[in-house]
Amino acid sequence: MTAPRTDPQRGKLPDEAVADMLRAEFAREIEVQCSRVPGAALIRLLAEVEERNRRRSAVALLESWPQILVPATVAALLVFWREDASGALDALLPLSIWGFSWTAGLGICAGLFTLLALWPSHLIRED
């Protein structure tokens, strides 16, 4: 480590001396770590395991969401048909300006949802 000189007037170390001390100190800290870092192969292996776990949890998520979505869609359809009779859909009047057939629309949506929901889990099981 270089010997920094103090400024006798102000009791401070010169700026460049501090920088030199820092460089020497940090270099020493890095040198100490050279023999302590794990091998690159271990890090690559850990990354692979992590990646596999991430994929597995993504698959689990794909498999689980139809279980929630399908009953939810069916429940929403049932609620719609009941509420339709009581005129609750008046709140959605702006949308009905398009003359959209709600029953048909929701039926198509439910069909699409079911298709989308079952498709990935079906694919995964075939894997």
């Binding site: 920094p4 103090t6 009791g11 170390l13 700026d15």
Partner: peptide, 21 residues
């Protein structure tokens, strides 16, 4: 930060002698 560090080292009195030596 450099100024702060320099002041801090200088203020340490006898301890800083070790660094200066």
């Amino acid at each position: 930060v450099r100024k702060k560090l320099a002041r801090s080292i200088a203020e340490r009195g006898p301890d800083s002698e070790e660094v200066r030596a």
